[in-house]
């Protein structure tokens, strides 16, 4: 069996064989890749667009595009990173269509320093999980991440929610590693600041 190995990776990722089979027309192999990544792609799309129907459409379109362009996938990156890149592009396109007045782009450098300089210095006690039940907590986390600019939200989602490496995130977004790091820091700090409103330790005498 031909081994398609990227020169950059020493260990061959199991996806490589599946992709090779899919390229030869093996639909079952492609279906296995779909099963492996459909939830992740859906989550990424939903995080970026904040819209469930859009996320469903984007997930379908991203896999269809991947299927159609499979021949062009050279294996220089992981298949999953390539797939995420397609889904991110589809998601940003969808956002642009929705917000006609506002540009949405990963290149757009968000100039504001809002939230990048910490202002809230209260500990979170008790832990968020002890303060809220699961449904309430999920609602707070959703509302909070929704308030971030799309460029920050996307970097945070790939890096901290989906656990892509900094390099993979850079590749998926077409950004440099320093640009990813800078956005990630600001995203983390802004989220921290916003979450502090919910999770900060209540001062004595202050109603909970």
């Amino acid at each position: 069996m031909p081994a398609i190995q990227s020169p950059a990776t020493e260990e061959v990722h199991p996806d490589v064989a599946l992709v090779a089979r899919a390229k030869e027309g093996d639909t079952a192999a492609f279906e296995q890749l779909v099963r492996q990544y459909e939830r992740q792609i859906f989550r990424v799309a939903q995080h970026i667009t904040q819209n469930r129907e859009d996320a469903e459409d984007i997930t379908q379109d991203a896999f269809l595009k991947a299927y159609e362009k499979l021949e062009q996938f050279q294996g220089n990156s992981k298949f999953s990173t390539w797939l995420v890149r397609i889904a991110v592009n589809e998601s940003l396109m969808r956002l642009r269509k929705r917000k006609t007045s506002k540009t949405v782009s990963m290149d757009e450098d968000v100039q504001t320093d809002e939230g990048s300089i910490p202002r809230d210095f209260a500990e979170w006690r008790p832990n968020p999980e002890q303060q809220y039940n699961q449904a309430e907590l999920a609602e707070i986390l959703r509302k909070t991440i929704q308030g971030l600019p799309p460029g920050f939200r996307t970097v945070f989602t790939l890096r901290d929610v989906e656990n892509l490496s900094t390099e993979e995130t850079a590749e998926a977004l077409g950004l440099s590693v320093p640009a990813v790091k800078s956005r990630l820091l600001r995203a983390r700090l802004q989220l921290r600041e916003r979450l502090s409103r919910y999770f900060r330790q209540k001062q004595e005498g202050q109603p909970a």
Partner: peptide, 20 residues
């Protein structure tokens, strides 16, 4: 110390709770 702790908690709370 607080910024370090609460930023760590920010990352962990998003990692630990599937919101979608």
């Amino acid at each position: 110390r607080v910024v370090l702790n609460t930023t760590h908690q920010t990352i962990e709370v998003y990692k630990g709770n599937e919101i979608y």
